[in-house]
Design a protein around this nucleic acid. Structure first.
Length: 821
RNA sequence: GGGCUCGUGGUUUAGUGGUUAUAACGCUGCCUUUACAUGGCAGAUGUCGCCGGUUCGAAUCCGGCCGGGCCCACCA
């Protein structure tokens, strides 16, 4: 049963203003309780499944969330209304660093103070409360998602799926462990992946340092990182560079440290940069790594995992990188070894999470081998329909630039553990049995002795997975991969992925990687990419800038429907600037919808919809326009173009329906005695159908107010418990009539002429016109006669007379009018 | 340096070849008309970023330039 409407007064006397604060929570509760749009696993209706983004459990719902989830929900609701079996779950991402911090703050203890399994249990417990609140926030947007399909990326099921994924890839030979230079964050003290890098412009010093050759010759090398001197393993010059090519083959002494390194010629040394002589250190940048491999140079590790100088740095040991940089430069200067130091700006790679400059350290890490599969990933991207299409370009651009396999091990404590041990005796890797999953190897042991050497002593892998290694499995998680194979087969690939453009490289790409590797198929048929919510000046909203606007506040001030209306004003993929104006516009539209529907229903009370044989001209005009609109809206929705729907539906409703049609139909409504029964029936049918259809067109965008109006006036007649379950309107081609549209257009033009006349004279629109004389040809006369009655009634005109005319006429009307009061 | 994207009245924006360029907000004047003054009617405001080309015809297609944004690369 639909809830009682809590306003005083009956259905007929619905109040003057719609109150979203009473209505919205009521319907949200109703939808959840009634399971409106809930997935039915055994139904054979067409399935539409959505891979929705699980928000991080750490903070609250911000404007960007509200914006993105609304756009997704509009699409979901459209499919629900079309009668599809919509699979629309909602998950929480609670296995990342942000959640770890959140839980630590909440319990006042560090994660490392307890066994890992205990911390995971604590997280499951603590985040449960937080998720209840988050659910309320998200629900307050009026999302139609199915909360019974909820998942959490740290729950047992997700950990199991994640570990299974690892094991399958390992068995396929797609996972390997390697001791090699990797991207390292000294602040977070973990390896990271290429995708976690970001640019940062930094102030720096360009130093020119004096190196002495063994034969006494002196050369100048340029560097921004003098602290790497103890890790210098070679000097490079370009063999084409006539200034320096003679140096090749000689040896140089590293200043302050005194040992000798070879001078090598390589095309990668850029004569244009600095002095054209560059030192190669292990490892200052990626070129260093290349040279180190190519020329089999020695490995000198000057930097520790915590970002301090190593033993190798001698007296500089223990200094932080930046301190060492300063100190070494000072010592070079005092020994006359520093030729010059010029301040400069350059961009460096930093860890996107903490902003720390990354280093290249040699550590033992697990990788997913995928650089050999770039082509396949690009092909996979091309099999998916991207909305908007151009977003695929950034996906391909990213793949083309990939140069590292996916490093998935993190030297962190909290996360999904690697399901494996190493044999203490022979080093063999022992993978957990499937029945052990999810497993924490620091808590359990392999079930059998080492198959290679028979030893029963094992060392657990203590690293955890990159959080994206788990969140890239959302389709597998939701579709019960390897747990319910018939369900998985039926549901995979999913219909749609929804996400932001900022994580194409992360989430979309990684999910396609996992999908391709595990199923050899793309994970979804289509993908919709939303933009960002920016502040009113187009800047990113950020807590630190203090320019964030709380969605809850805006919903309190206006309504969830108003917020959704704003969110529907930006095309998919476009960023949106916050604009309070849109909220005002929405509130006015809602008021107009409320009042127009109240008016309509008042005058067709007790009416049971019955389609007439013939329509009055003006009704035929309305219905023709309406059916064109329905067609256009459906096409627009199918193309993810809800902006078009919003625009067209609003214009049609406000101007064509309210300003023109309702004004013209009022005479029939107020003075039914002057009309025939069929003329009255025609009006009632047109009013009923048009109003209901428009409500349905607006329903995906503004689900609450449309539901409220539907429940008051339509649910009984339509025999539906919700507008969202009442079916999507289908266009009636037979009602589309260019002739009717032409006649309606003529009536509107003439009424407009009358209004112009009254307006220019400062008259009330009620003023009676004694005569409207129209000059036009005979064909036009005939047309005007068909709408004469409507014009007279609407324009308060007593008489319309015609005069023959063959000359110059008003183009829009092919007629000329003279008006007499 | 590469890729993508945007540039239309004061503001936001529709419009991907066809008569006079869309609408909203704001602005001006009028109208207390029995759904709504959170309303209605009327009006003012545009060299459609700049230059060139294709075309009978360009906001729209092509080329170049200028300016904004995003992503990637480089980063001695």
């Amino acid at each position: 049963m639909a809830p009682e409407n809590s306003k005083e007064g009956s259905k007929e006397e619905s109040s003057r203003f719609y109150d979203p604060h009473l209505s919205e929570p009521k319907w949200q509760e109703y939808w959840e309780k009634e399971g409106i749009g809930r997935f039915e696993p055994n139904s054979d209706r067409r399935i539409f499944s959505i891979d929705t983004p699980p928000p991080t459990v750490s903070g609250t719902m911000h404007m960007g969330h509200a914006f993105a989830y609304t756009q997704m929900d509009i699409i979901a609701r459209y499919h629900i209304m079309k009668g599809e079996n919509v699979f629309y779950p909602f998950g929480f991402d609670d296995n990342g660093l942000a959640t770890e911090r959140f839980v630590e703050n909440k319990i006042g203890r560090r994660s490392t103070e307890m066994p890992r399994t205990e911390f995971v249990k604590t997280c499951l417990r603590e985040t449960e409360d937080a998720e209840k609140l988050l659910k309320k926030s998200w629900q307050s947007l009026g999302l139609a998602c199915d909360w019974t399909l909820n998942y959490r990326t740290i729950d047992e099921h997700c950990r199991r799926v994640s570990q299974r994924s690892f094991i399958e890839l390992y068995n396929m030979g797609r996972e390997y462990r390697k001791n090699s230079p990797t991207l390292w964050c000294p602040e977070c003290r973990t390896a990271i992946a290429q995708v976690e890098l970001t640019d940062k412009e930094t102030e720096s010093q360009f130093s020119e340092i004096l190196f002495e050759l063994e034969d006494g010759e002196k050369i100048h090398i340029s560097t921004t990182r003098p602290e790497f001197l103890p890790a210098c393993v070679a000097i490079f010059v370009n063999p084409e560079d006539s200034r320096h090519s003679a140096l090749i083959g000689k040896k140089a002494k590293v200043p302050l440290f005194g040992y000798s390194v070879p001078i090598i010629g390589d095309a990668k040394a850029d004569p244009e940069k600095g002095t054209g002589i560059v030192m190669c250190c292990t490892f200052g940048d990626q070129t260093d790594i290349e040279w180190w491999k190519k020329y089999e140079l020695p490995l000198k590790i000057a930097i520790n995992k915590d970002g301090t100088m190593s033993e190798l740095a001698g007296v500089y040991k223990g200094l932080a990188i930046k301190e060492a940089r300063k100190k070494i430069a000072e010592d070079l200067a005092s020994n006359n070894l520093l030729v010059s130091q010029t301040p400069m700006k350059h961009t460096v790679n930093v860890h996107e999470r903490c902003g720390t400059e990354i280093e290249f350290l040699v550590t033992e890490q697990w990788f997913v081998k995928y650089l050999d599969m770039k082509e396949q990933f690009i092909d996979a991207g091309r099999k998916i329909l991207w909305h908007p299409e151009h977003m695929r370009a950034s996906y391909e651009n990213w793949i083309n630039g990939l140069q590292w396999d996916w490093c998935i091990s993190r030297q962190r404590y909290y996360g999904v553990p690697f399901p494996l041990w190493y044999c203490k005796k022979c080093g063999e890797i022992i993978i957990a049995e499937d029945k052990q999953l999810p497993v924490d190897p620091t808590e359990s042991m392999p079930e059998k002795p080492c198959p290679k050497c028979g030893s029963a002593e094992f060392e657990p892998e203590r690293d955890v997975f990159d959080t994206w290694a788990t969140s890239s499995l959302t389709p597998e998680i939701m579709l019960k991969w390897k747990e319910d194979s018939s369900f998985f087969k039926k549901m995979y690939p999913m219909s749609l992925r929804a996400q932001g453009h900022d994580i194409i490289n992360f989430w979309a790409f990684n999910t396609i990687v996992k999908g391709t590797l595990h199923t050899n198929e793309v994970p979804w048929i289509e993908i919709m990419i939303n933009g960002w919510a920016l502040d009113e000046h187009g800047r990113k909203m950020a807590k630190s800038k203090g320019n964030g606007i709380e969605p809850a506040e805006m919903m309190q001030k206006y309504s969830a429907d108003a917020l959704r209306f704003w969110a529907a004003s930006a095309k998919l993929g476009d960023d949106i600037c916050f604009s309070e104006k849109e909220f005002t516009v929405a509130s006015r539209l809602m008021n107009k919808l409320w009042n127009a529907s109240k008016f309509c229903i008042q005058h067709i009370a007790g009416y049971s919809p019955e389609k007439p044989q013939d329509f009055e001209t003006i009704d035929a005009w309305l219905l023709s326009k309406l059916n064109c609109l329905v067609k256009a809206c459906m096409a627009a929705f199918d193309n993810y173009d809800f902006v078009r729907v919003r625009l067209d539906a609003e214009n049609f409703f406000w101007h064509e329906f309210c300003d023109e049609y309702l004004e013209m139909v009022k005479d029939r409504i107020y003075n039914p005695g002057s009309y025939t029964a069929s003329e009255i029936n025609s009006a009632k049918y047109a009013i009923y159908t048009a109003m209901l259809t428009m409500l349905k067109l607006f329903a995906p965008i503004m689900p609450h107010i449309t539901e409220e109006i539907f429940s008051l006036h339509y649910s009984e007649k339509e025999n539906a418990r919700s507008i969202h379950a009442a079916g999507w309107p289908s266009a009636d081609e037979k009602l589309i009539s260019p002739d009717a549209e032409e006649l309606g257009g003529i009536a509107i033009e003439l009424v407009s002429e009358i209004r112009k006349f009254k307006s220019s004279k400062g008259m009330s629109l009620k003023t009676e016109i004694s005569k409207l004389a129209v000059e036009c040809d005979e064909a036009m006369q005939g047309k005007i006669r068909k709408v004469e009655q409507q014009i007279k009634a609407t324009g308060k005109v007593k008489e319309i007379s015609f005069e023959q005319n063959d000359g110059q006429l008003n183009q829009a009307l092919a007629a000329k009018v003279k008006i007499e009061v």
